[in-house]
Amino acid sequence: MLRYILKRLITTLPLLLGMSLILFALMKMTPGNYFDSLKLNPQISPETIDRYIKLYQLDKPLLVQYFSWLTNILHLEFGYSFFYNIPVANVIGGRIWNTFILSFVSLILTWGVAIPLGICAAIYRNKFADRLIQFLSYVALSSPSFFIAMLLLYFVSQSGFLPLGGMHSANYEEFNWIGRFFDVLRHVAIPAIALSIASIGALQRIMRGNMLEVLGQQYILTARAKGLPEQRVIYVHALRNAINPLITLLGYEFSGLLSGAALLEIICSWPGLGALMLTAVQSKDIYLVMATSLMGSVLLIMGNLLADILLVRLDPRIRYE
């Protein structure tokens, strides 16, 4: 097992390198860099701008810039953010946790809602409940999440029972830990719901399919024939086998949430990586972009790995060498 994990990690390393090089080249290929916007400020002289370029080695060839960045990474130096004038790690540090919270809550919400819905739909196959769930799933799958967030915000503003955007109340510091927990939870509700809706639709349909497949298996028939109560058949025997294949999805979902949330974070003013990344890409704050997307990719790799390990734990038939 350990060997397998190590091997996986080693094989992904060149992928990460390749990806970062492509991204680096892309950022460099685009015309103009961050300092161009400074050039339009009439009170900044060209000499000032030249000084900036020297400071960040922007005048060296592409590969030199890339490798100096890479060597710095090995020293856990992620470079400077031109925009914020501080190390990239310090810009990202505070926000990665927020994005994690949003992703985590949304993940729990997705699974918490989709799995029961999928089971319900499978049990009542082709009945009204199933039809309704399927229809709603299609609607959920088909609506852009930024749009849902916008509408949610609007409706919530009419009723006023949830805070609109942000992550903490103004008097957050005065709460005890329970108060703080619920405060964050209330704030995370809207972006998490908007982020989850499409995934709920997708996951529900997969769960339903798996459940139907399992319910058609021999051992379920056997169990029923033995006269086991239906509840027990479904929730003990069928459910376990239907959920297993879903575990692999968990990894993908986790990292997908990270990049899917950019527009959403802006609309809900959630202080996460997505909003940061969007402005960073647009202003070509190159080291910030590199670090953030590297982080996203690492998260994806970790997610996949985690899913595979979980799968082994849950399904005795699978072995990795």
């Binding site: 916008m150 609007y154 609109l164 609309i267 809900c268 003013s269």
Partner: peptide, 10 residues
């Protein structure tokens, strides 16, 4: 608050 609409609702 990055989004002007959100700011207005706030």
């Amino acid at each position: 608050v990055q989004n002007q609409d959100t700011a207005m609702l706030k």
